[in-house]
Each structure stands twice: as C-alpha cells, then as structure tokens.
Design a protein around this nucleic acid. Structure first.
Lengths: 159, 159
DNA sequence: TGATCTCCGACCAAATCAGTCGTACAAAAG
DNA sequence: CTTTTGTACGACTGATTTGGTCGGAGATCA
C-alpha cells in the first residue's frame, strides 16, 4: 500500500542522475538527454520523456532544445524537495479523498466522519517528512546499502 | 498521491464505530452489525462486509454469527495500530515495488538504482508513524469538528 | 538545409479497485 | 427438532486509473 507510481520512481532516478552529472566531480555542468537516462536505467524512453516534461513545467529542471540539448537542474539540489517532485508528478498529497475539499459537498459520510481529523494529522506528518528531504540528501549518502534490519522481519505480518 | 483505498477508509470508520460502542459510556459491550455501520456512514453494505471479514481474519475484530450477531473488537484499542489495520486491508507497506524483494530479481534498474536507500528511509519513517498511532488515538480527540480553518484557505501548510 | 533533440497531444492496453450477486452457515424462535 | 432469520463469506463483474505507445511540430546546431 501507499506505493508511489512509476512516474515518481523514474522521475527521482532521473533527477538523481542529472544532479550527479551536474554537481559531480567535474566542475562543468554536463547536459544529459532523455535517451541517455532511459538506457542507463532501462526505462521506456517516451514515458521518461513525459516525466521530464512535467518536471520541466514545474521548474525543477530546465530543458534545452535541439541537438546537444537535454536537461539541467533548475535549482540547487538543496532547494529541490522530494515533496515538490512527487507532487508535480502525482498531484497533491492526499491520504483521503476529502483532503482538500471545501465544506460539505462530495462526501456523503463527511458529517458522520470520525476519522478525518486524525488522518489529516498523519497526512501532515508525511508531508513534513517529504518536504524536509531534498535531492541533495539523495546524492550524498547513497552507499549502495544493505540496511534491511529496519522493517523487514520484526512485525508479525500475516501473508 | 499516496491516497489510500476506500477499503481502508471504510475499515477505519467501522473500527472507530465499533470501538465507540464497545468502550463508550456504557460498560457492557454492544455488538454492532454490518448493516448498522453501513447505514450510519452511507457505505455499500456488501463492500463493508468484505472489509470487516478481512479485519476479522487478521484478528483485529471478532465476528459473531446468527441473529443478533455482529462484530466486536478483537483486542484493546491501544493494541490496534493503524499500520496493522492498513496492512491487513491493503497489503504490506511499500513505497516502491522493490521494497521487500530479495536481491537481484524482478527489478531491471536495481543495480543502477540510486534512490533505493533514501526511499527506504522514508518508507521506514512512515511506517513508524503509522505504527505508533493506535485506534485509541482516533477515539479520544475526535470532537465531531468543524475545523475548517486548518486546510481550507491556506495552501501553504505549515505544521 | 538536414539531422537531431525536445515538446506536446492523443491514443491503447493492462492492472487495479469499487461495488454486486448468490450461497452457506450459525443462532434464535416455534 | 425444524423452521426462519440474519449473518458471514467467497466468487464474480464493471469501472477507473495507470503504465506505456505513437506520430507530428518546433527549435537548434553543424
């Protein structure tokens, strides 16, 4: 549950890649294009293209047309929050349908709804989580891992 | 994005209702049936039934057959975590597809995947959030509200 | 001018989800 | 002990969302 879409996955991967090439060892910014990223991560090109276009509209990246064109980061990695990326790709964060509706309409059970307040609280916490993490955080400490001790076995999950 | 399913919504509402009737003012436990809940919250009966069945299998509630039958909580509200409820209704928590897969299979981009570790961290934080909140927390402070000052006007959500 | 690349719209197929129908079973009533 | 009532339960179906595809137009550089 709460799985995020492929678009989001691809978008984050692409951003990480772009950022690496732009702020990596070499000083000069390198423009990377859609095809390059798609091949590197085995992503369908056209879909990735659409994702990048969306990110471009949101100002997260800049597009450069023509041959030798491609994408560059629109701002500093520290300024790019995960929340912003995800929201621009998947729409606004909303745990439940009635997250940001005006008063009474559209929700039959609204007046009797007993779970709205606590759920809003959860939603807000998640938002803060995503809003406090930036692309920069995804660059630095990514040592290929094996943290599986965290949430794998412990909970008595029935399958 | 990250919206949870109707099943989850209905399940939480129903649990809140059951808990209220069982641990409310009156000392004796009152058995509530599917139809009652469905009418109260305007939920399609059969769908709610299925949800309750699932919760019953997970041991979160107990079912009682026959006339005057219905449902009761399977444990104390403090023992019932939101995480458990949601996972039993929507499957295990997984921000990304490769959340709990064993090593190399099933994910083409796995070896080049640069976002797995940070995303796992986020996922784990969300899990803790859901795991620390119990049904009890949804009972106490739910004063029927008309808190519309929170998320109506202001888009820029702070804390 | 021609080749290469991004941009943009519409389009299709597969998977998931919300909701429905019919049956089996347990408890109360006669 | 049989009937009747109301429940749980599981299989089934329709609708919405999502992942992925296709074709063309505009911009830039050699």
């Amino acid at each position: 549950m709460l799985k995020l879409s492929k678009k989001a996955d691809y978008g984050l991967m692409a951003l990480q890649h772009i950022a690496s090439n732009q702020y990596g060892d070499v000083a000069h910014a390198r423009v990377v294009n859609t095809k390059e990223i798609a091949e590197e991560y085995h992503i369908p090109v056209e879909l990735l293209a659409k994702v990048l276009q969306t990110l471009s509209k949101s100002g997260i990246i800049e597009s450069h047309n023509g041959p030798k064109g491609g994408y560059l980061l629109g701002k500093n990695p520290r300024e790019i929050t995960i929340a912003h990326v995800l929201e621009s790709l998947e729409g606004p964060l909303g745990i439940m349908d009635c997250s940001h509706e005006k008063d009474g309409d559209a929700c039959m059970q609204r007046e009797h709804c007993n779970i709205r307040t606590p759920l809003l609280k959860i939603q807000n916490s998640i938002y803060q989580l995503l809003n406090n993490m930036t692309l920069q955080d995804m660059l630095g400490g990514t040592p290929l891992i094996t943290i599986q001790s965290v949430a794998t076995e412990q909970q008595g999950v029935e399958r």
